[in-house]
Write a protein that binds this DNA or RNA. Structure first.
Lengths: 142, 142
DNA sequence: CTGAAATGTAACCATACTGGTTACATTCAA
DNA sequence: TTGAATGTAACCAGTATGGTTACATTTCAG
């Protein structure tokens, strides 16, 4: 329970914010649905704001809105908005401490890992927020 | 410096172990090259042993050996050997605590995230340990 | 057979990241 | 003006990781 749920919270939040024009979506609403704390939601939404994916209105009857329709927002964009650094990391060999071959290996690994991670990002780029919403609505019908 | 360097250490180690027939590769050798501690290397190599990717001989003139040639070992196998749990996680909404819709969203997200992660795994499965070794040797020439 | 060299593993610590929580200033609408 | 909402700082707890020491165990060399 120590990793990486930020992305999930972000997608979940964005999915609810997609309905922001029909209902007021507050951090408290979202937190209830996600099963977490309003402050956590606000932290994540802050990153979405900084990435230009949503806008937030303070004050009474506040709430958030998407800046684009959910069919034009990809999970890749959300991922990049909230995730910092590569998923596959290479330890920074403390300078000079490791043998020269060790440094070469580190550089090579970084290249390989980047290519692998791109595979994940490309798939995320092909998934639209609207796809997630559709899947949820479909499951809800059943 | 808190995440995920296990995989990098594992690939680096396996790469050195590929030369185990021509030279004695000890955890201390590997640790020097990686820039870490022999115990850390042994911990990771233990997982590779359990996954059947290498064998280790204790005692004097010990060292490790690959169970297959490096052209038949993929980075995907190494990844699965040392990495536990999905890279993209969905918070387990504390049972009953979250609204029913929240649970549906969680399930949907898990599906989407799995598909995305598969993109990374498929690429890792196409990368052979031999490819890494070749790339390192090539860089070393220059 | 003995000793040196190597592994396997437990134990402990420091560090870092995350998420939960409280608190409070700020903003905005009714 | 007041209440509802956000933004953010601050602090805590839990967890994972990596570094380190220590020690039992294994295995080969001599």
């Amino acid at each position: 329970m120590s990793v990486n749920t930020r992305f999930a919270v972000a997608v979940h939040s964005a999915g609810m914010i997609a309905f922001g024009e029909r209902m007021v979506v507050t951090s408290e609403n979202i937190a209830k649905s996600v099963g977490t704390n309003p402050v956590v939601v606000r932290r994540v939404c802050g990153m979405l704001v900084r990435a230009g994916l949503i806008t937030v209105r303070k004050g009474q009857n506040g709430g958030a809105l998407l800046t684009r329709p959910p069919s034009q927002i990809t999970l890749g964009e959300i991922y990049r908005a909230v995730e910092t650094g590569p998923a596959l990391q290479v330890p920074e060999s403390r300078e000079g401490c490791s043998c020269p071959v060790g440094k070469i290996v580190g550089g090579v690994l970084r290249k390989f890992f980047c290519r692998a991670e791109d595979g994940m990002l490309q798939r995320l780029d092909r998934m639209k927020l609207a796809d997630v919403i559709d899947a949820v609505l479909e499951e809800k019908q059943q």
